[in-house]
Design a protein around this nucleic acid. Structure first.
Lengths: 217, 217, 217, 217
DNA sequence: GATGAATGAGCCTTCATTCAT
DNA sequence: CATGAATGAAGGCTCATTCAT
């Protein structure tokens, strides 16, 4: 599929793809800033330097565009992430890799955070379902669960409800990023302080989590 | 006439101070469901069974109404919360009280969750700032930080960066609630399973956190 | 009627009249500033320090209020003017009196100017008709025409079409006042210059008119 | 197809550069009839046979449209007027030309009269300022003032304050037109009489003015 | 008389979407 | 593919007017 694209694109439609991609990128930014309801098709057109009608040439509707734009970032994000979390490493290294992966995800694709937040607010988010299906069994959660089970089996971890253990790890990681504006205000941090804080967060999380789950000597 | 009113008002307060409050309640629901951008004034009027113009009789604009509605729930919520978290109790009891308070907050006022989520997505949320100022120094974070310091001093807790410790506790609690739809999908839980899961969550969090921060014997 | 009023008013309705008058005065100001279409009932109520509903207690509709307010100023204005123009005086004195009367009218009741201007723009102004009927045969035009005729008869004035002569006199007087903002801009006059200019205008008009109509020696 | 257009456009320019101009024309009529406050965007759309939204595609707001429409008529009017007033002609001819120009202006563009009247009623009319700047130094007033000065210098005219002299000429001309509905009522003229009266007015004005300013033999 | 609250119709403006070229 | 113009359906807000007390 990618071969096909690469070879066919040079000749004629070399200009075709860019437009579509530009629209997707513009849409992503717009929706990240304003949400689906607050996002404006005009603004997307402007951002992409295309005529508004062009958007409807490439996409069925604003909502479709939204879905495709979101799917698109996730595709890129997941691709970039690849296999940064390997079960071959020591447990704490693996946890660190997982944490890094989450932080990198939101740093590398800053539009994901606001979009995800807004989707979490939506009663029956199709986006959330779609994203989940994209990540599927290859995601970090699956890897973590497997490792947890093994660690419990060999006695390194306390006997915990692993669903909660996973939920806690996710909450610590993703939740910290999601809630940063709140925590900033509580701790009276300015922009640069918040940035530094976030950078230290990974270690703090892994440390707390490890101690929290490890079986007592 | 005034006698009449006074005596009649007690029995049927459902109509006592209606319109403005009905509008606020309707607005809260509408904005919780659809956000500020997606919320419709017409729908709020309908929900409140008032004429659309009545909304503008009581409130300056849609945005003002939004802010007042949010301020209003928080006022009620904070009032209801009172002093459920007391520093006189053993540490783990206090943590449990704090967790309970958060869970109760979001259960008792289910509109807060989606509103908070969407505000977290907003670059410079005035709402977040306002809410923070409403909670102020009486909030749980302040109490926790104080207790943490004391516990570190007496050697019960490991020497940790307390800002991160607090952030972790908040992420575990609030983050878990915020991210529930995500976790549900990851763990393939249906509605009732999710509910049960959330009910157990409090203990799981306190357990993990306590173990995570406690100094080793 | 006036007896009736005077004797009855003291007892009870002493407060009644003021409200109505306050509304009329407020309406006059509002309509002078914004016109009938641009005038706001709310603003009139505010200006009159009465409840908006009170306006509808005293007047049928916004339009009615407008008409009554206009009729009211004119009534006051005409009353105040009385017989300032007397045919007993020398011709040029009489012209001066007429000019003074017009200038006084617009200075003493500054709301009349904008209202009149806007009514002149209305295709079939009922107000204009009403005002005309209020002034009737006692107005300055009638007096002037009579004097003109007499002056033509005795040879002091050239044989002119007296309708045009009258029109010219009115245009010179009222027109000058109406068009002041325009003339100000053409002659680059500031506020105080314009005021001084208007004060001199009376003499300039009488002088030009007199020379313009007088039979050559 | 494009050929078709090119060849067809000449014969039927009625559709050549339509919408924007149609809107401007419709707006002009609407605002002339009802004023800015009373003018309705819906009605303008209807008059122009365009969708209401089209108005906002071409113009920023109702007020902008108003300003542009007014600027537009004045542009056309001034263009049409050109140099009808020449200083090479005898004084009374020149005055006649000036009078003709004013009468033609208001006859050729009947919307200007009501618009000007309403703007004269506006405390700080931007329109009046704009119009003045459009006319600038090429307008009749400048030409008249220059001629007046010259005529005073050569002794043909009495020594008058030329600002007042100009004001009087303008009041006689423009004022007569503006105040016609008033004069009609005073002189009890019907439609056709008023029309005839207005046609004679030019000569009456020039005659009065000339005699009024001329130095006595 | 007087008021606060209420209402229906309407107003300006915007938005997603489509059409003709 | 690309564009400028067009459109119908709201959407937020306002206004004159009325009602209950």
């Amino acid at each position: 599929m990618s071969d096909d694209q690469n070879t066919n694109k040079a000749p004629a439609p070399a200009e075709a793809e860019p437009t579509r991609k530009r629209i997707l990128a513009a849409a992503l930014d717009e929706f990240a800033e304003h949400g689906l309801a607050g996002g404006r098709v005009d603004r997307i057109a402007e951002r992409a330097s295309v005529n508004k009608a062009m958007i409807y040439y490439h996409f069925t509707s604003k909502e479709t565009l939204y879905k495709e734009a979101v799917a698109d970032v996730y595709r890129q994000a997941l691709e970039g992430l690849g296999d940064k979390v390997s079960a071959d490493q020591p447990f704490e290294v693996m946890l660190g890799q997982a944490a890094d992966t989450y932080f990198d995800l939101f740093v590398g694709h800053p539009q994901i955070r606001p979009i995800l937040l807004r989707e979490l607010a939506e009663p029956n988010s199709e986006i959330l379902t779609m994203v989940q299906s994209m990540i599927g069994e290859y995601g970090i959660p699956a890897k973590l669960i497997a490792r947890f089970q093994q660690k419990v089996a060999d006695g390194t971890l306390r006997k915990l409800d692993l669903r909660h253990t996973l939920a806690s790890f996710l909450a610590l990681n993703i939740g910290s990023i999601m809630m940063l504006p709140m925590i900033r205000r509580i701790l009276h941090m300015d922009d640069s302080q918040a940035k530094a804080f976030l950078a230290e967060r990974r270690d703090a999380i892994v440390d707390l989590f490890l101690n929290g789950v490890r079986a007592k000597a």
